[in-house]
């Protein structure tokens, strides 16, 4: 029995995925067309240069309900995801990653969502990748984020999730330039749940260079973009330092009164200089991070630009039998 009461959108970002995009589209459409009367598969081409767009356009001749939106250049993943959410029309939007999310799981997640959840997140089981340091930092971040941001954020690289229309509408209203879907997801609230799933491997995992550093930047970016707590901490530290400075000033004052022989001031003044400069630079570091965000937010320009859009034109060339002329 096909479900005809909802429209399901599956949204995927394509960035140079020519080798797997055809397989993914075929499998996903097969699953969707079997289970749902109304569905769409939305591919956001994030400036691919390997001909992924042509492959998809060729598929559109044959496979119905496939939409392709081409961004004008490669944007970061979060912006591409924003474009995907902006253009999905479904009652439920499924976010997937082509590399490893199994289309077979879509109906399970949707069914869970229909049973009363606004966000259903796929939780990968058996994540064998990553070193010890990686895992430790990940769990550290998770704890840190729940303290600083107020929500525990999954840092594991999975986006597989179903989002209801209500939540999509809420998220798409947030037009921050620094955006993190995982954070936005929890930030807007609504009911969440998790469904475990086993990843598949459509191709040999891409060798990600500097993954550790990227994760660290990602974590720092997410925290500073969404929380003022580090800024407040920096301000407190600054306050503390200036308080010390005040004490030191008092000490100098008293010493000047009590002691008349003031020759050796070199040590103290250089100690003071180093301490103060340490704090000044610490504060400047944090401030510059925030100023970077302010800069991005105040540049009032669209998140992204769209180059083209194409849809399935399920072809007339295949239904010859209807046209006996």
């Amino acid at each position: 029995m096909k479900n005809s009461s909802i429209l399901v959108s599956v949204s995927v970002v394509v960035s140079n995925d020519n080798e797997i995009v055809a397989e993914f589209v075929e499998q996903t459409s097969a699953v969707l067309s079997e289970k749902y009367e109304y569905y769409e598969l939305l591919l956001v081409d994030n400036g691919s240069t390997d001909g992924s767009d042509l492959t998809v356009q060729a598929l559109q001749q044959r496979i119905p309900n496939v939409r392709l939106i081409g961004l004008s250049r490669p944007y970061d993943k979060q912006t591409a995801l924003a474009a995907a959410l902006d253009h999905s029309i479904g009652d439920y939007v499924v976010i997937m990653e082509m590399d490893h999310d199994p289309p077979d799981m879509i109906p399970t997640l949707i069914t869970k969502a229909i049973s009363g959840y606004d966000v259903v997140i796929g939780e990968q089981i058996g994540d064998e990748s990553g070193f010890f340091l990686d895992k430790w930092l990940t769990s550290l971040f998770c704890r840190l984020s729940s303290k600083i941001l107020g929500y525990p954020i999954e840092l594991r690289p999975s986006y597989f999730r179903v989002i209801s229309r209500q939540v999509v509408n809420a998220i798409t209203r947030i037009r921050n330039k620094s955006r993190y879907l995982k954070y936005l997801n929890v930030q807007v609230g609504f009911r969440h749940t998790y469904v475990p799933y086993q990843r598949i491997h459509r191709r040999r995992a891409r060798h990600e260079r500097n993954r550790l550093f990227r994760s660290i930047f990602y974590a720092i970016g997410m925290i500073t973009a969404n929380s003022a707590i580090p800024l407040r901490l920096a301000a407190l530290v600054g306050l503390f330092a200036s308080f010390l400075n005040l004490l030191y000033f008092g000490y100098i004052f008293i010493v000047t009164l009590v002691n008349e022989r003031l020759v050796e001031g070199w040590l103290t003044s250089s100690v003071m200089n180093t301490t103060m400069f340490f704090f000044v630079f610490l504060i400047l570091t944090v401030l510059s991070e925030y100023i970077a965000h302010i800069l991005e937010e105040t540049r009032d320009q669209p998140l992204y630009f769209i180059k083209y859009e194409t849809s399935s034109t399920t072809s007339i060339y295949t239904d010859e039998k209807l046209n006996v002329v």
Partner: peptide
């Protein structure tokens, strides 16, 4: 690719 438009509309 020529086809009779009305005929197509009626049969498709």
């Amino acid at each position: 690719y020529y086809r009779d438009a009305h005929h197509y509309l009626e049969t498709a």
